[in-house]
Structure formats: structure tokens, C-alpha cells
Simulated assay, not measured.
Amino acid sequence: MTSFSYNACCYITCCSTTDNQNKQKVITIKINGTSTTKAGVLRHENGVVTSTVAPVGENGYITMDQIRQNIPIKKQFVDPYRQGRIIEEGVGYGQTMVIRSYEVGPDKTATIESILNLLQETALNHVWMSGLLGDGFGATHGMMRNNLIWVVSRMQVQIDHYPIWGEIMKIDTWVGASGKNGMRRDWIVRSHATGSVFARATSTWVMMNRQTRRLSKMPEEVRAEISPWFIEKQAIEDDVPEKIEKLDDKAKYVNSDLKVKLAIINFNSSCYHNKGIY
């Protein structure tokens, strides 16, 4: 079994764009004799013109991101496109995933980076299915109103077996309270064929103000949004990770000239990178 942990500061919200980007023209259509204002996108294919319409925002336009994402405004129980479903008596989330060829290493087993990516994806899809997702990257409506984002402060992963290329997995995730101002999120990764456990993981999430970059207490309106989803269940019973020894000058390999690359910048930090802030 492989077990590791780390203290992280992963910012997972997206930067805002200008209001004038990717806007669609407003059109008026009639449904059953009643005029309705919509935002339309016309497509021409093989001589046939089709249109896609969506409700228009307050400013008379709808952004292309809103059309493409189609974020649910209420709780969903099944997501056929992602093969996801609500579990744990209506508060947990489970999703079926397949290990793809570009997610494995030379030995045809999934890399730890790929596994962590899948854990993050299921976490965000859980919020998506809850109907609480605002226009941020995993942030709820209350968090967006308070200009808050999620920060992963700690994560521990235990891997019993690495899934191989083409293997079908079932990933279950749920959330619970972590102190007064934190949230705990756990995962269990199982084989779809046998039900055997590949990996378990637990993490602690806290909130940060997007502008000041300071940690924030959990507002009551945010607590009211997410607390109904809390359950008392742990993927890793003894979740106290082994202490990582501090490196000193005796380290065998040292690289002190590390620089941030575009490939490792996430949505939340990318706008700060562009401003020269790291």
C-alpha cells in the first residue's frame, strides 16, 4: 500500500472575464402564440439551419460559457453524461470513470497525478449535481456573494493498487464538517468489476477571500448551503498522516531554481500569474 500526504494551497476557482466576451444576439421567437425573448445561436450544417436558444440575462445577453456549461439550478439525482449519481441517502456522489491511455505511465498503471485529477473532478461534479454551484470553480452561490473561494489545505491519499489502462472505476465522494470553519471531503476508489478498493483519500478545505488572499471564516449563509450535505463518515479512519521530515542541507538532490510554468497554474492563480504575482 502506498500512502502519502501533503499540505496544499490549491486554489480552485476561475478568473472572471469581461462582460462583452462571447455574447450572443437576442432573438424573439413565438411558442404557442406567445412571444418569448431568448438568446440564440444559429448553426448551418449540410444546408440545414438550426438554432439553440437559452434564457436571456438581465443585461439582455447570455454568455457563451453559460450556454456551454448549462449549470443546474436545482439538485440533480442522475447525470447520464458523466455517469454520475447522488448516493449516501441523497448527500453523497458517485461516478463511473475509465482510465484512459494518456493517464497511465510506462507500466500501464494510472499515475498519481491522474488519480488526483479524478478526485478533483468528482469533487466538483458533486457540487455541480447539488444545484449549489455558482459561476466559480466549485464555489457555491453564497461563496460567490462573499467573494470566497475554496483552498485545499491538507490531503492524504492511501493507494492499495494502481488501476490499469482501460480499467473501469467507481469513485464515491462525500463531505463533512472539519472544525468550525473547514470542510472535510473523502473519496473511495473501487474496481467496477470486483468492488475491491484501489485507493482512499481525505482532505480539508477552507475558504479564502479572492481579493485579499486571506483565509476567511465560513459565513452563515454558506454554512446553511453546505451543512445539509455533511455526513459523519471517514474513508481513512486513522487520518493523521505521517510527519514528513524537513529537508536540510544534507538532502541528496536539491533544485533551488524552480519556476512556475503555465502547465501547473490552476484557474484561480492564473490571473495573478499574468499580473506578475506568484
Rank of each mutant, 00 (worst) to 15 (best):
V91Y: 06
K108C: 10
I86C: 08
T204S: 05
I67Q: 06
G92E: 01
T50L: 05
N274F: 13
G138W: 04
C15Y: 10
M207A: 10
N255M: 09
S203G: 03
P72C: 08
I31L: 13
K75Y: 02
G276Y: 09
N70E: 12
R68Q: 10
S191T: 00
D257H: 15
A199I: 02
T111N: 05
E221G: 02
T96C: 07
T50M: 05
I67M: 14
A123T: 02
V206A: 01
S153V: 12
G142R: 03
K261A: 11
E88S: 15
P72D: 03
P55W: 10
T63Q: 06
M64Q: 14
W128Y: 15
E58W: 04
E89F: 13
M218I: 02
K259I: 13
Y11V: 03
K25A: 13
D172H: 07
S178Q: 08
A193Y: 11
S5L: 01
G84T: 02
R214H: 11
E237W: 07
Q83A: 13
V254I: 15
I265D: 01
H192F: 11
D107R: 13
R100G: 05
I226W: 12
M129C: 07
D65L: 14
K74E: 13
I73E: 06
D135L: 12
K243F: 08
T173Y: 03
V91E: 01
Q66K: 15
R210M: 09
E232N: 15
S191V: 01
E58P: 08
Y11D: 00
A235K: 00
N268I: 00
P106E: 03
